[in-house]
């Protein structure tokens, strides 16, 4: 039963691979935008009054402690029952972004908590308004601390994009499966995709380590 590695199948798969890669990167880009912005909203809400903070804690804990896969099914199959029908790309990006916003929230929270209390007091002593204090003083300092950790979550999201193939998006893994079903060559496309993830993720994580060292101080 031992079948040989077939390089022709690899070359044959490549056009499908590139199409898949583009969709993977699209889902990742939208997911990142959502995760970064929504996570910030959660983190600021956590500093608000209890009637805002507690529901936010409840919702984010629930999202973080349940599988992204089921959340994707929920967005793709359940949401259209009451709301708009979402394409696989849209549902996938929302699911990815929503799920990871609960992680970026913690990153922002740590970054915001890491700004010394003296900064709030100084802003207060200068009569700055609360929104202006956030914008000019707290967030610029918090962001700096969060860049490496946020970068790590982008890599984590990249590795979760294949889940979107389960609701029909033909991203990299989806392309590999489709190619396998058509040609009965599973081994080559799946290996190519697996290597592709490592090839993208490894330099990215090296880059983040460099950034981390650079941004450690002002």
């Amino acid at each position: 039963m031992n079948s040989k590695w077939n390089w022709d199948a690899v070359w044959d798969f490549m056009p499908f691979f590139w199409d898949g890669l583009i969709l993977t990167l699209q889902a990742l880009a939208w997911g990142t935008v959502l995760a970064f912005s929504l996570g910030l909203v959660w983190a600021i809400a956590l500093r608000g009054p209890r009637w805002i903070a507690w529901p936010v804690i409840g919702v984010t804990e629930f999202i973080r402690n349940t599988p992204l896969l089921i959340q994707l099914f929920f967005l793709f199959y359940v949401v259209p029952e009451w709301g708009p029908t979402l394409s696989a790309l849209v549902a996938g990006s929302i699911g990815l972004g929503l799920h990871y916003s609960t992680y970026t929230m913690e990153v922002y929270r740590a970054g915001i908590d890491g700004v010394p209390v003296g900064q709030w007091e100084a802003a207060r002593a200068l009569s700055m308004s609360t929104p202006h204090t956030w914008k000019a003083v707290i967030l610029p300092q918090a962001f700096r601390r969060t860049v490496p950790a946020l970068g790590n979550y982008v890599i984590a999201m990249l590795k979760e994009t294949p889940l979107i193939s389960t609701i029909g998006l033909v991203e990299m893994l989806g392309a590999a499966r489709a190619y396998g079903v058509q040609t009965f060559n599973f081994m080559e496309p799946i290996t190519v995709v697996g290597v592709a993830f490592i090839v993208i993720a490894y330099p990215a994580s090296l880059l983040i380590r460099v950034l981390e060292r650079r941004l450690a101080t002002y």
Partner: peptide, 10 residues
């Protein structure tokens, strides 16, 4: 303030 509390990002 005792600890200056200058804004390090400015």
């Amino acid at each position: 303030f005792q600890q200056f509390n200058l804004f390090p990002n400015m």
